[in-house]
C-alpha cells in the first residue's frame, strides 16, 4: 500500500445540530487520515453519522469544530463560494438516488460539473464526458435520456459525472442502496476497477458485507469511530457478480 500522499486528514471533527432546545451530536470527535489510492468503506447503522461525515468531507457542510485538510488545503473555515469551487474541482459526489437531470442525455449530465468551470472549453467538456462514460461502460448510451435508463445505468452515469472533473477523492453515499444485489455488485465492480486505476474512494454504506471489497473499513457508532481496519484480502466483486444467478 503506497501511503505517500494525504488526501484527507481530519482531526477531532465534531458536528452538532441544534434542534429546538436540544443539541443532536451527529459527530462527536472523529479523526482519520486517508491516503491517495485508498478504497475506504464507512459503515454504521442508520443514524450513526455517516452522511453527516461524508457531507463534511464533501465540503457541503462545515464542522462545528475540528480540523479538515483536503489535498493539503485547510477547508473548515472556507466561505460558501470557496467551498463550491472546491467541490467543483476536487470532489466527485455520488448519491443514493443518482440525482441526474431529467430529460437530459447521459452526456449532458456528465458534462454538468464542467459547465461550472469556465476553464474548460465546450470541446474539451464533451471529450472528457464521453471518455468517462466509456470508462463506466456506457459508451453506447451517450445520447440516452436519463429517464430512459435503468437504475444501474443511471448510477453509472452518476459515477461518470463524479469522475469527469478528475477529483482527488470520490465520495459515495449509499451508492448501491437503491439497487438489487446483482446490479449492486456490478457497480461495486466498477468501484474496484476505479480503485485499481489508483483513484481514492470513500464509500458509505450500512451493509457490513461490503467491507470485504474495500481496502480499509471505518466503523462509526453514535458519531464515534469504533474501528478502523485495513483489509489486505480484498474480495473480487466481479467474481461474485459473475456467479450470481442471471435475473430475467
Amino acid at each position: 500500500m503506497a501511503k505517500e500522499k494525504e488526501i484527507i486528514k481530519i482531526v477531532d471533527l465534531k458536528r452538532y445540530f441544534k434542534v429546538g432546545d436540544e443539541t443532536v451530536k451527529a459527530l462527536r470527535g472523529v479523526s482519520f487520515t486517508i491516503y491517495e489510492g485508498e478504497f475506504v468503506t464507512i459503515m454504521g447503522t442508520s443514524g450513526s453519522g455517516k452522511s453527516t461525515l461524508l457531507n463534511t468531507l464533501g465540503c457541503l457542510d462545515t464542522p462545528t469544530s475540528g480540523q479538515y485538510l483536503l489535498d493539503g488545503i485547510s477547508v473548515q473555515d472556507m466561505g460558501k463560494n470557496e467551498r463550491a469551487r472546491i467541490r467543483n474541482r476536487k470532489i466527485g459526489f455520488i448519491f443514493q438516488n443518482y440525482n441526474l437531470l431529467p430529460k437530459t442525455t447521459a452526456l449532458e449530465n456528465v458534462e454538468l460539473p464542467l459547465l461550472y468551470n469556465s476553464g474548460v472549453s465546450a470541446k474539451e467538456r464533451a471529450e472528457r464526458a464521453e471518455k468517462c462514460l466509456r470508462a463506466v461502460g456506457l459508451g453506447d448510451r451517450l445520447y440516452h435520456k436519463s429517464n430512459q435508463m435503468s437504475g444501474g445505468q443511471q448510477q453509472r452515469v452518476a459515477i461518470a459525472r463524479a469522475l469527469v472533473n478528475n477529483p482527488v477523492i470520490i465520495l459515495a453515499d449509499e451508492a448501491t442502496g437503491n439497487l438489487d444485489t446483482r446490479t449492486s455488485f456490478s457497480i461495486l465492480t466498477l468501484f474496484q476497477k476505479l480503485y485499481n486505476e489508483g483513484k481514492t474512494i470513500i464509500f458509505v454504506t450500512h451493509n457490513p458485507e461490503l467491507a470485504l471489497y474495500s481496502s480499509r473499513n471505518i466503523m462509526l457508532r453514535d458519531g464515534h469511530i469504533v474501528s478502523d481496519e485495513y483489509n489486505y484480502d480484498i474480495k473480487s466483486a466481479e467474481e461474485v457478480y459473475r456467479n450470481l444467478p442471471q435475473e430475467e
Binding site: G58, N81, R85, R87, N88, R89, N99, N165
Partner: peptide, 11 residues
Amino acid sequence: LRMSIGATGRD
C-alpha cells in the same frame, strides 16, 4: 445537485 457539484449561489 448543481450546488453539490460546484455551482455557487450566484450561479
